[in-house]
């Protein structure tokens, strides 16, 4: 019975993982084709604004660009070609770093973004749930009201706004940190980690502060409700210690929805990481996508967006697989 239930759960999650990537990639194929803007003509206009070319060369460039963008053949052939490329993560060469493959450049930047998102999510989630749990369990203490108000004040602020405030305060007003992150790659591992850590502090703190507010608010509400359940009262009547009630009864039950909330939040965290990276000039996918936009590197934008979709949905899938570990109703066997 249990095995069947987990199998069903896993199948559903795998299906949704596949659907998200498939619909996302399909979206990315059709959006450019239904938008009035033509990336090929845009590129040609950009080239012509820099140099003047004879007409036959323009025709030649147009043809080769159409080929690079996968715009030859019928719509259906183009779609199949695009899907085939997407499976191999092949989105053609980057135009700003020609002829390097766009997705291999994304792969160089991706670990920084994934690392930043992962570490800050874990810290924010743990910290937020602990604080929320305490605030909910002792709901009438003054400290828990203050904590909740701090969370309410910080949570609605978008990532990049807080990033700007942090940057202005710590890099301009107090000058504690350098303005742009520099990560030294070629002077050994120790120097690399040192510079990486130093440039990650401000982006990471920003993301933790924005991220943890929601966990405080939702965990407080959740544990407040759980603390009023009959079985908690019964446990108290049986003379079980308050500490044990807090951990084994209230925490154990209110953490379950927080884990499923974790997987839902990952997309937003990734978006937040992109924005934070851009403000702090942190060398992740956010900076890459900004460069690609300003230089109109269409293949690079496609590669970044596709790989972002794949990595977020994979991370979501991974978080969803933690869920059965703590929820006895859907248990591994």
């Amino acid at each position: 019975m249990r095995r069947v239930r987990f199998g069903k759960y896993l199948a559903g999650r795998l299906l949704s993982w596949f659907m998200v990537i498939f619909i996302g990639i399909t979206f990315m194929f059709f959006i450019p084709r239904f938008f009035p803007a033509d990336p090929v003509e845009g590129m040609i206009a950009k080239i012509l604004s820099m140099t003047s070319l004879p007409e036959d060369q323009v025709v030649y460039i147009r043809e080769s660009l159409r080929m690079q963008y996968g715009l030859q053949g019928t719509l259906w052939q183009q779609y199949l070609g695009f899907l085939k490329g997407a499976v191999r993560l092949d989105f053609g060469p980057s135009l700003m770093n020609f002829p390097t493959d766009a997705s291999s450049i994304v792969m160089r930047y991706l670990p920084y973004t994934v690392g930043l998102s992962l570490v800050t999510t874990v810290v924010a989630w743990t910290l937020g749930n602990l604080i929320g749990m305490l605030a909910g369990f002792r709901k009438n203490k003054k400290s828990s009201v203050v904590l909740e108000y701090i969370a309410i004040f910080i949570y609605p602020i978008p990532y990049f706004i807080l990033a700007l405030v942090v940057q202005i305060l710590f890099c301009f007003v107090w000058r504690i940190f350098p303005l742009t992150a520099t990560i030294v790659l070629n002077q050994g591992a120790a120097r690399f980690w040192e510079t990486l850590l130093r440039s990650s502090i401000l982006p990471a703190c920003t993301m933790v502060v924005v991220g943890f507010g929601w966990w405080v608010i939702s965990m407080k509400a959740m544990s407040e409700n759980t603390a009023e359940e009959e079985y908690v009262r019964f446990a108290r009547l049986r003379g079980i210690r308050e500490g044990k009630i807090a951990t084994s009864y209230v925490f154990r039950n209110s953490i379950i929805p927080q884990v499923s909330g974790l997987s839902i939040s990952l997309g937003g965290v990734f978006g937040g990481a992109l924005m934070t990276e851009i403000i702090f000039q942190y060398p992740g996918v956010g900076q890459l996508v900004q460069k690609a936009i300003t230089q109109a590197d269409y293949n690079m934008i496609m590669a970044t967006v596709s790989i972002s979709i794949v990595s977020i949905s994979t991370a979501t899938l991974a978080a969803d697989l933690i869920y059965p570990l703590i929820d006895p109703r859907i248990r591994f066997q």
Partner: peptide, 14 residues
């Protein structure tokens, strides 16, 4: 669950 920001970036960048 689809990450909105990357897709919004694609659409508006076009």
């Amino acid at each position: 669950v689809i990450p909105s920001l990357p897709i919004l970036i694609l659409m508006t960048a076009l």
